[in-house]
Nucleic acid binder design. Structure first.
Lengths: 205, 205, 205, 205
DNA sequence: AATGAATGAGTATTCATTCAT
DNA sequence: CATGAATGAATACTCATTCAT
């Protein structure tokens, strides 16, 4: 199943149409999930006809994929910038900034963020998510490199960055989902402790 | 939407029917996913008529929910027993056993495990998943309590257990999904280091 | 595209349903052609729901194919019997009977006959038509064999039968279509002359 | 439904556009049939916009009709010329020429020829086909008139021409369609025999 | 005249669910 | 209780046609 947009709009009017469709779809996805998303409803919400929708998106999945890509991109950019800017100080501060970013920096609200995660799977956009994970992991690695001397010397920075990214992602998901087994009140604190302990403990623990 | 089974079968034959339906549904779910599951196919695979299926399950979601509950239960039991039995030795060994269990002990194969996770969401069975998480967390807490002296004294064991459970679950998912940002080769090793560092490092890192 | 019926009805009720659907479809096909045939309309006309239609026919073409098969079969039987019964007398009389049959013996009216021809193509049922042609040609060959001595000795009877069948078919079509270049008033007469001349003229003409 | 072209282009550029559209449509018709022909694709293939297409053709049928007319005209001309030129010799030779023409002289290849036959029906252009048949029949009649003395005196030449035209058309169709009940190997030979026998046999067979 | 974006009625097809037998 | 025929609302997607630019 082809999930690529059918054509990129050239005229201004067409651009507006596509934008409206993506926004409308994101709303519906957030409110009702992928199952109940309907091309007709998406078009209606966007204030255009179904025909117009299909002019740009060959099928329902392509539409959802466009939403995932659109907002995923935005999210990655925001997140990367947030942790870069928060990393001027100590390692401890940097890690704190990362956790903070994971918990709050969804440029579009946690609802939509949760939706995107869920939808990405159903739409063969796992690669997109993976790419974003990678981008973030690389950024983290750079930041860690700036604190090399504080980190256990036998730790491979790439591995460590990957693990940290994983933890951040998990924490973000659980926060967003209101998962009951989240670390009681002080999730942020526990999480920082986890990461710092991992980074700074010498081998053999 | 009511997701509860319509009635509990009393006679042996009826029990077998229900069992067959659940097994058949689980198979279809694993092979083709939730989207393509149909009550007709489930009934056919189980060797009964749709009518019979509806005798026991009021609707499609109830059917899926039954599958989730059935196998979720099995999984929790297996997992809890596995980590309990692996916890006779040192803290280090216990943690190793937990990770091992997370990576391998899906009594029904990772395929179905993955499916169940996915389906549970679609069927408002998050509570079921949550309950399982809790059960596992409590078991972990008990195990940690057995090694209190090795663990940083300021760590709240419930919090710690929750965090550990979270990490284990994440690791299990990523393994099952083949997530690309998994910790390079030695996921198990990195993971153990993470957990042990967290548990044993004194406050302040 | 699969054009075979989905299942053969077992219960009486189901049989009636299928019958009704085929009849209704034949009517619509006759009245409006294949293009405008709609599964919904066919079901409605048959007095059943679309769902029921799809229980027996996997798609629109299969439905049309069923009609073609159903009536094609009837037609072939009627036609073959008609020319066999009309062939008790002379060669001249036999040929006359064939032409007569071609012009009148559509058990279901020429309208539907025309429709069937047209539809058969669109539905990959050419083989069906071909098979019917063959059956008729073989019958004609048998009849001709009964008059061997009157027929030019160098004529291959199979070839001759094929040609005669072709002519009959063409004549039938043109009659049914009201083709303007049909042989003025006396199509039947001209046609008999054509065939008899062909059969009885010595080689080299 | 109006099937006439919307306007006749006067300027050279417009003429070229119309020509391009007709050619493109004919290609699509040949490659994919009438069912899948869309105005958008026709326009695209012709290198113009849909809007332009609708400037000249009020609707899809008109477009198809134009194609039928355009190539039908060409075909008739070619065919008539071919049989006229082949009729300088004996009756036998003339008939041979006709058959040859029927089998080969499709100025645009049998594929397109077949398509045109099929499309003509769907587009209420039967008259066009009828007119072509008439034209050809009249030409045949003229040719037959040149051999009056060889032909059975009681045969009406118009009737005979009509019958001959019918046979030629049938043969051409079957050849183009690869009809299985075609006269074994020597279709041309059998056909000539058929026609000559008809023309020259005295009444009463 | 040309363009191509927008329209929306129309169609095939599926599938959860009911109910007569 | 079991069966499976019947239902029909729901949905994705197409395409002839129009019209603002």
């Amino acid at each position: 199943m082809d999930v690529n947009p059918r054509k990129i709009p050239r005229q201004a009017r067409a651009c507006a149409t596509v934008e409206a469709i993506i926004v409308a779809t994101a709303q519906l996805l957030t409110e009702q999930g992928f199952e109940t998303l309907t091309t007709a409803r998406a078009a209606e919400r966007a204030g255009v006809s179904v025909g117009s929708l299909y002019q740009y998106f060959p099928n329902k999945q392509a539409l959802a994929a466009a939403v995932v890509d659109h907002y995923g991109e935005k999210f990655a950019t925001t997140f990367v910038r947030a942790i870069e800017e928060g990393s001027r100080g100590t390692l401890r501060e940097s890690v704190g900034a990362m956790i903070h970013a994971a918990l709050v920096s969804h440029p579009h609200g946690p609802e939509l963020h949760r939706t995107l995660i869920e939808v990405a799977r159903r739409v063969a956009r796992d690669e997109k998510n993976a790419e974003i994970s990678s981008r973030i992991a690389r950024t983290i690695e750079k930041i860690l490199a700036g604190h090399r001397e504080e980190i256990a010397p036998d730790l491979d920075l790439a591995d460590a960055a990957a693990l940290v990214e994983t933890v951040l992602e998990t924490v973000a998901h659980r926060a967003v989902e209101g998962h009951p087994v989240s670390i009681a009140g002080d999730m942020a604190g526990q999480c920082r402790r986890l990461i710092l302990a991992y980074l700074t403990s010498p081998a053999r623990g």
